[in-house]
Design a protein around this nucleic acid. Structure first.
Lengths: 250, 250
DNA sequence: TAAATGACTTAACGTATGTTATGGATAATG
DNA sequence: CATTATCCATAACATACGTTAAGTCATTTA
């Protein structure tokens, strides 16, 4: 019932691509229906990520509480939607989730999902990559939604800095960034003129020194303090539980 | 070399969870290095989605051109990043992609990715679900970045409308939406007061009638025309090529 | 029934950001 | 070398949106 009710599984079923064994697998999953009352939390940010749910009844949403007191909602979940796939491939939740009104959900452990993959480490790795990309995207969404121009630009530069550092393209806190201010403005949802203004601001505060494509961050940690940087989404390792499972399998 | 260079594969390798066969599989992939010059396009929105790439050298970006002449950049790609996973599970590209400076990429067909999954239809289905979720998120990012309040709200309402229609929760263009304006404001990145103002605007234009949780869209198509609604990301079927492949396999 | 609470509307005012314009520096082109 | 285009900085002005506040209506609680 439950997992088969979800949108994609329905798509697969309709097209007849699910083998009888696959269907049996899905139908054989343990069903744990939970009744949740309005505004009750399913989990909090940073909690252990070990399960996902299918909404049977009611609306839910996932969100991030921000330092400045505001919050950004990432998604509303309607009946049939899957909550919590986002965190597959991470050890901890990247966002909180809560019911909006009274409802019913079915929960499934990541381990069950894992077994659906036939313990193929490649498939798991690819899904985890995809989820990490999504985490980057979510982070940008949060910044577009909730922060002012200078915070968005600071966050952007710090993200680029971290990603370049991972591939050894940063030396002495300097790196090459082949982007025009026009491109940056198209990414951050602001006008090119305001990107220029904002760069000037950051320069005056001694946070960013830039000459054409050469960018220097005199004090990256100061930038990181200015923005609310969630470094967990950069982390590149699969949860330990996964590697244990994979190693244990034939 | 190429796929193994990517971030997650590196993670898997380090943790020793990739079996020798998996590694052989990855190493055995055909390598098609392509030299791409600055600002050359990799593909355009709505082109056939049949491959993804790994960036070896240079920067690239994916973006959407919008009706109002602006564009929203979804992501910058640095060496080691994978471009084009986003569209796995769709028949056509949801966004364009282009190089920023001169560079080199390796291309892989979705078919190759497909075979890495051992043709497990479940694994493919789950990845496709995940990619569809990501598409929804991208769409929201685009709206947060580029559109004014009334367009964001209109887009939001139309998305909810479509999603509810799919689960038969719309009757006579009316549905129940258990959201406060506070929640909507947290989702759309605007103040609750401005959500109210914007609802008034849409009401005066005869686009949205609302009484508490009851929402009526007298003319959904008019709403859809107001916003630039990309309905391809709602479509729930796997590309036909995939189901053919799956059916053909044992 | 009265009081209190929460959701919403509308108004007044302030501000961050968009828009348009101009000039200067650098790079590309003939 | 001259010319042209591109990128960037800064200024003046316009506006969409945030903030604060006050008032209405419905719902809950006493």
């Amino acid at each position: 019932m439950a997992l088969l009710d979800t949108v994609v599984m329905r798509g697969l079923t309709i097209q007849g691509v699910l083998s009888p064994e696959d269907k049996a697998l899905l139908l054989g999953l343990e069903l744990n229906p939970r009744h949740i009352s309005a505004s009750e939390e399913l989990w909090q940010e940073r909690a252990d990520a070990d399960l996902f749910c299918v909404v049977k009844k009611g609306w839910a949403y996932s969100y991030r509480n921000l330092r400045n007191g505001s919050k950004q909602i990432l998604k509303f979940y309607l009946p049939g939607d899957i909550i919590g796939m986002r965190d597959f491939g991470f050890t901890r939740r990247l966002s909180s989730a809560a019911m909006i009104n009274n409802g019913v959900i079915y929960t499934f452990s990541y381990q069950q999902l894992f077994e659906l993959f036939g313990r193929s480490s490649l498939a798991v790795g690819i899904l985890a990559t995809a989820m990490r990309q999504q985490a980057l995207l979510s982070e940008r969404l949060i910044y577009l939604g909730q922060y002012a121009a200078h915070e968005r630009l600071a966050h952007f530069l710090y993200e680029i800095y971290l990603r370049l550092k991972r591939i050894d393209a940063v030396q002495d806190n300097s790196f090459l960034m082949p982007l025009t201010q026009q491109l940056i403005s198209d990414a951050l949802g602001m006008s090119p003129v305001h990107v220029s203004r904002t760069f000037s601001m950051l320069r005056e505060e001694g946070l960013v020194i830039r000459d054409r494509q050469h960018v220097n961050l005199p004090d990256p940690e100061a930038l990181a303090r200015l923005v609310e940087f969630n470094d967990s989404y950069i982390d590149e390792c699969l949860p330990l539980t996964f590697s244990e499972l994979l190693k244990a399998s034939p």
